[in-house]
Nucleic acid binder design. Structure first.
Lengths: 218, 218
DNA sequence: CCGCAATCTTGCGCGTACGCAATATTGCGG
DNA sequence: CCGCAATATTGCGTACGCGCAAGATTGCGG
């Protein structure tokens, strides 16, 4: 379904996209993110600057996409792969955690780069919205067509929650530090735990939807 | 808290912002959205083009903000104003519905404009994200400091749901039309009902949070 | 093996977004 | 009433985003 042999045309497009991603990340690492112009990336990938913009709508997207790549697809797959026995909320949570936990050598290095510059940070956070469509599909599959709208809302909520979790986690801790009182802040903990905590409040909504499906399905 | 008399400086800034908003909307209506350059708006408001960009980061933002203006503040106020007796989920839902239902003459006209052009439509939808911070504050007030993180996630989820509701509602109905089977689509109904339906799946999450607060507060 | 329709790439041009440094405005002590 | 620090406005320069139309590439049907 995802990749029937596919024609040469499509393969070339993917190759170009890949080349742009790699070039963007490599150059950004080599000489610092601000010293890389679109022109440079395009040249390194062997295409015209205009073509670059046919693939990426902003300078930052290419760099970020080198890290986020096909995270969306993997999350959706992980949800779908989950056994039907477990709570949907848990399936989704673990699928998300899994994808953000397995940070490879290169991802780690890129993350440092991204955290530094605000523009990149924003682009990185915006990229979390991309998980929404595939996640919608995966959730809809479990909830049934009657809850299509619910699936969409839940997927969007998850994306929003993930974004928040990453936002907090990426804080240089340079802000107010301790917020005293009951403001726990927790930006220091491990990312997986942080994601789980942030997603937790949504669980009741998933449970209710799942229950509704079960009852309706009888 | 919101507006102590405030100095001249601040008032002038608001006046400029207001002037830019109005100029942008007026010109967009008069000659069509694509025939308005930033230069025109700035001139009409009596400031330099460069100053325009100190107030709005894109050409579309000014136009859209003439419609969305201080929707954020009003939603937050409506939630806070809600009696403590009603379910938080209902308070939030009704606060949101209220703000989007009361569309004035001018808003209605502007909406037509916005729906037409994709760039404006996107900017309009992106503007829903602005309700998140004030909504977070309003929800946090009801849930207590211990649920600060929950408040943030719920507010973001609401914003995401509202966005989805508006997205569907704005569809030119030019797409697949009937999705057959149980895909109800409903883009034709009234906006208030549509908002309520879309927000409904989040209610259980609100209920759970509220319950937690009550128990913890004992 | 060929031609043709679909699609991708590219150069061009316009308008936009924004960092920077100079200049003007505001409004708080003195 | 005045000077001074803080803040806003502006011009300039650079790079980006993208619509458009011409030219190249792909690959399907004959």
């Amino acid at each position: 379904m995802t990749t029937p042999p596919a024609g040469l045309r499509e393969r070339k497009k993917q190759a170009t996209r890949e080349a742009l991603r790699e070039a963007a990340l490599r150059l950004a690492v080599e000489r610092g993110p601000d010293q890389v112009r679109v022109e440079d990336i395009a040249e390194a990938a062997g295409v015209s600057p205009r073509t670059y913009n046919n693939y990426f709508a902003s300078r930052e997207q290419a760099i970020v996409s080198a890290v986020t790549a096909d995270r969306e697809a993997r999350i959706a797959a992980a949800v779908t792969a989950g056994p039907a026995g477990v709570r949907l909320a848990d399936a989704v949570t673990e699928a998300v955690v899994e994808q953000y936990a397995n940070a490879g050598e290169r991802e780690q290095q890129a993350l440092l780069l991204i955290t530094a510059r605000t523009a990149l940070r924003d682009a990185f956070l915006d990229a979390t919205a991309d998980i929404e469509p595939p996640l919608t599909a995966a959730i809809a599959e479990r909830l049934g067509d009657a809850e299509a709208r619910t699936a969409r809302v839940l997927a969007a909520s998850v994306a929003a929650a993930v974004r928040i979790a990453l936002e907090d986690w990426l804080q240089p801790a340079g802000s107010a530090e301790a917020v005293g009182a009951a403001g726990l802040v927790v930006p220091a903990g491990s990312l997986p735990d942080h994601l789980r905590t942030t997603l937790a409040p949504l669980a009741p909504a998933f449970d209710a939807a799942e229950r509704r499906t079960r009852e309706g399905g009888l």
